[in-house]
């Protein structure tokens, strides 16, 4: 008898606590959450640079929406869109974006802004890559087995890096090729500590420049072009999930609209002397 009582008391306790926890908090949050919420899956570069902290409050003030930005790599952001875990994505990997929209997960792709990737390294540039093209630089680095830090996280930057390696016809591997598996900010610091080469978007580099001794060695190469696009997630693909498509569209209109573009254009100018991102819709 005892056993039964013990088991029933315990299970009732566990159940009731869980029900209380979830219901109390679910109700306390419910009003806020009710489909005014937009989940924006985006890249670490737009978030860690501080750009979204400027854009989102203005958007929220203009509309009744509440944006929840989730900063992950482009690969994960796209995966979130495919699963319907996000309403809109802001990413930078052309091929992946095209596939995402062609397979029907996204309804449209809109250009938002761009900057360039840069290859950075120690000031004394031991492998002498300064001024080379990106592909030449990678060939030199791999021939010298100079330390190189890769994001290794399936992010947009990582995808671009791999694309450049593919152009060189060599596969980077060995002790000199380090995969950080982390965001751009952390990767920059690892490269700095190890005095290694790495590739970064210019925005994150500028935002972190004060903490880094690494300098820009390769820039302006066509292959290093870094365009960001915004894609609303297709609600038709996830009929059982409450995708906030209207909210997503409103965000797309905002970020490609006059106000959003003006914020992008101004962002970072005061602090770094030049914009971190260049708007695509206004010039």
């Amino acid at each position: 008898m005892n056993k039964f009582r013990f088991l029933s008391v315990t299970s009732i306790l566990i159940l009731s606590t869980f029900i209380i926890t979830t219901s109390v908090f679910a109700f306390s949050c419910k009003d806020k959450v009710k489909n005014t919420e937009i989940i924006l899956a985006t890249t670490t570069s737009t978030y860690d640079s501080g750009l979204l902290d400027e854009l989102i409050p203005v958007f929220e003030e203009e509309t009744t929406y509440k944006v929840k930005p989730i900063a992950v790599g482009t690969g994960e952001a796209i995966a979130m869109g495919e699963r319907g875990e996000a309403d809109v994505i802001l990413v930078h990997s052309r091929e992946e974006e095209d596939r995402f929209v062609e397979e029907g997960y996204g309804t449209e792709r809109r250009d938002v802004m761009h900057n360039g990737f840069v290859i950075i390294g120690p000031e004394d540039d031991p492998s002498a890559i300064s001024g080379l093209t990106a592909v030449e630089a990678y060939i030199t680095i791999s021939a010298n087995e100079a330390l190189f830090v890769s994001r290794g996280d399936d992010s947009g930057t990582n995808k671009k890096e791999i694309a450049i390696w593919e152009e060189t016809g060599t596969t980077p591997q060995g002790d000199w090729y380090i995969e950080s598996g982390q965001g751009m900010g952390e990767t920059l610091r690892i490269a700095d500590e190890k005095q290694a080469y790495t590739m970064t978007d210019r925005g994150t580099y500028l935002a972190q420049q004060n903490n880094l001794s690494l300098i820009v060695l390769v820039e302006g190469d066509e292959i290093l072009f870094n365009p960001y696009r915004v894609i609303p997630v297709n609600p038709e693909k996830h009929k059982d999930i409450d995708i906030n498509y209207e909210g997503a569209q409103a965000f797309v209109e905002f970020i490609t609209g006059e106000k959003g573009q003006a914020i992008i254009k101004e962002f970072g100018v005061a602090e770094y002397g030049k914009p971190l991102f260049y708007p695509d819709v206004i010039k």
Binding site: T21, T22, F25, A26, S28, C29, K30, V33, E37, I39, K68, I70, R83, G84, E85, H238, D240, I241, D242
Partner: peptide, 24 residues
């Protein structure tokens, strides 16, 4: 709790409640 999960309809993802549950 994610949207496609069993309790997705509660919309708990990315809320303080979700953090409380994980911490419990």
């Amino acid at each position: 709790i994610w949207r496609s999960g069993m309790l997705g309809f509660l919309k708990l993802m990315y809320t303080p409640t979700a953090m409380v549950i994980a911490q419990v």
